Simulated assay, not measured.
Amino acid sequence: MPLVKDRVKQTTITTGTGAVALSGAVAGFQTFAQAFASGAQVYYCIADGTAWEVGIGTYTAGSPGSLSRDTVLDSSNGGGLVAWGVGTRDVFVTLPAAAVSSGSSEVTLATIHSYTLAM
């Protein structure tokens, strides 16, 4: 199961539909390297203020670290990979609605307990 952790956020300038290189740390947030071991599967969101993508990716440590975009759960591109253009965007960890919803907008404590939270 993908992991989640609070307040993980970096930026990227990667273009296209492949893995994103994780660049700048965002003040007040931890980096993916501080939150996860290399190879960890995580829920992510990439957003630039207009376009966005939510999915499951794999964090790989390095200089810079990277995040693959393995499964798109939803996006501003009709649910498909967003082809990122030139510019800076945020990459952060989120618990997506698709991970906790089964046709209901309500999240129950039992639902939350069925997902793995990184410690």
Rank of each mutant, 00 (worst) to 15 (best):
P2T: 10
V4E: 01
D6E: 13
R7V: 09
V8G: 00
T11N: 12
T11D: 13
T14P: 02
G16L: 06
T17H: 06
T17D: 00
G18V: 03
G18H: 11
V20R: 07
A21D: 08
S23Q: 15
S23T: 15
S23M: 11
G24T: 11
G24I: 08
V26L: 03
G28C: 07
F29P: 09
F29R: 03
Q30L: 09
Q30A: 12
T31G: 08
F32N: 10
F32A: 10
F32G: 14
A33Q: 14
Q34S: 15
A35W: 06
F36A: 12
F36G: 00
F36L: 06
F36T: 11
S38I: 10
G39C: 13
A40F: 02
Y44V: 10
A47R: 13
G49I: 13
G49W: 08
E53H: 03
V54E: 10
V54N: 05
G55S: 04
T58S: 12
Y59C: 11
Y59N: 08
A61F: 00
G62V: 15
G62Q: 11
G62L: 11
G62S: 13
S63M: 07
G65K: 13
S66N: 06
S66T: 15
L67H: 12
D70V: 09
D70T: 13
L73S: 05
S76V: 02
N77T: 13
N77F: 03
N77P: 04
G78P: 02
G79V: 04
G79I: 00
A83L: 09
W84G: 14
W84M: 11
G85C: 10
G85L: 09
V86T: 10
G87D: 08
T88Q: 08
R89M: 09
D90C: 10
D90W: 08
V93Q: 00
T94N: 01
T94R: 05
T94P: 01
L95P: 00
A97V: 06
A99K: 02
V100Y: 02
S101Y: 07
S101C: 04
S101R: 11
S102N: 09
E106G: 08
V107L: 04
V107N: 00
V107Q: 01
T108A: 01
T111R: 10
T111P: 01
I112V: 13
H113R: 15
S114M: 05
Y115G: 02
Y115K: 10
T116D: 12
T116Y: 03
L117H: 05
L117G: 02
A118P: 04
